[in-house]
Amino acid sequence: MNKYAPSLFKLASWRANTALIALITLLQKSPVIQALTKLDRSVLAPLARITQKATVAIAGLGSYQAISGATTAVYVTNPEAPVSANRGEPFSLTFSVQNTMARASSWSVSGVVPEGLAVSGSQGEPMIDGTYFNAEFGLISGTPTVAGAFTIFLKPWRDAEMSGPTAEAYELVITINSDNNSPILDAPIEDQSATTGQSFSLDISASFSDPDPNDELSYSAEQTDGSDLPDWLSITPSTGVLSGTPSANDVGAVLIRVTASDGELSAEDEFSLSVTEPIDLVATDLVLERIGNTLLAKWSIVDGLFYTLEMTSNPIDPQSWAPLETDVITENDQQRAELELGSLPDSIFLRVSTSDTD
């Protein structure tokens, strides 16, 4: 039997090639067809028969992949492509493949699946290792959370666990629509200052809002050049509070960009944050002078500091000191206040407090 194998192979190959030539020449003018009748009388048969013979011959010569390539796979989705869904609304899509040389027993999945959606077998068979599932039909379901266009590739396999290809992968684009509104910057953030050795805190959430009542904003911050915040400064994403305590090594100014995001859209703002050394608070001498029924209080001042005239009836109690409500006049490096003696208690103690903040 092995003795005749070569001749049988040659015969099959010759007949296949002849059938293929016949199929091609049928598309040309009749003189060419007549010339080929000397090679194979089958070319005189009706067109339908010749086409059928040629197709069988080609398939018989090809490999498994060639047979599959001669068949056009038909992918069926419900709903039909193009596929779209709405963010925040339940979504479900089934898919299958037809007209393949072998029925699909498993599917592999690649690409980007929209957040909130999952791919599985139509009966809920879970994905294995996040790569494939063993089932004849597929299901994409869930509630999408992010808008955009997402492309995934679904490839059917003849056997379980992605064995034996049966058709080329199917490219499926899922568009997630959104009626989401962007967060709004309500009030630009003013430039800020911090002092070394003292805690700094700034709540940026008060500067942003979102028109969508159910959206929760999260906050982030970085320097405007895209680098991270200085080591001493951090932000709490859920509250939008910037906080930290700078040291002497942090003296200088940085430009900060803050962002409020609803998970899809965002708004941002920029401001300057300057870190300085603390100002030495110098106590000032209070000079009192009585002029008739007026008590004149005078004291020296330094640029960058703030002064308050305070009074008490019990100087031993530090909590008893309170600002004295009176007009203060500033002239050059001095301030003064004129007090009517008749408006003051019989016994009173005065002092001037100094602060680096107003």
Rank of each mutant, 00 (worst) to 15 (best):
N2A: 09
K3L: 08
A5V: 12
L8I: 08
F9K: 07
K10S: 09
K10M: 09
L11D: 12
W14Q: 08
W14H: 05
W14A: 08
A16R: 08
A16I: 09
L20Q: 03
I21P: 02
L23N: 07
L23W: 10
K29S: 10
S30G: 06
V32P: 05
I33W: 12
K38G: 12
L39P: 00
S42E: 15
A45M: 13
A45W: 12
A45R: 07
I50Y: 09
Q52R: 10
A54V: 02
G60L: 11
S63E: 13
Y64T: 05
Y64S: 04
V76D: 14
E80V: 02
V83C: 03
P90F: 14
F91Q: 03
F91T: 03
L93T: 06
T94W: 10
T94I: 08
S96T: 08
A104L: 06
S105T: 00
S105Y: 02
V109E: 00
S110I: 00
S110P: 01
P114K: 03
G116R: 09
L117G: 02
Q123H: 12
F133V: 01
F137M: 03
I140A: 02
A149R: 05
K155L: 02
K155E: 08
D159G: 01
G164V: 00
T166S: 03
A167E: 05
A169K: 01
E171Q: 10
I174V: 03
I176L: 03
S178M: 07
I204E: 04
S205N: 10
S205P: 08
A206S: 12
F208G: 00
D212C: 05
D212A: 05
D215K: 13
E216Q: 10
L217K: 05
E222W: 07
E222S: 13
E222G: 08
P230W: 15
W232D: 10
W232P: 05
P237F: 04
V241T: 07
V241F: 08
S243D: 01
S243C: 00
T245M: 10
P246N: 14
L255K: 11
I256V: 15
S261A: 08
S261Q: 04
D262R: 04
D262K: 06
L273I: 15
T276H: 13
L286R: 04
N293K: 13
L295S: 06
A297I: 02
A297D: 10
S300W: 06
S300M: 11
I301F: 11
I301E: 09
D303M: 14
L305H: 04
T308W: 13
L309N: 00
E310P: 06
D317I: 01
P318S: 11
E325N: 12
T326N: 07
V328H: 03
E331A: 10
Q334I: 06
S343N: 12
L344K: 12
D346C: 02
S347L: 14
I348C: 04
F349S: 06
V352L: 04
S353A: 09
D356Q: 10
D356I: 01
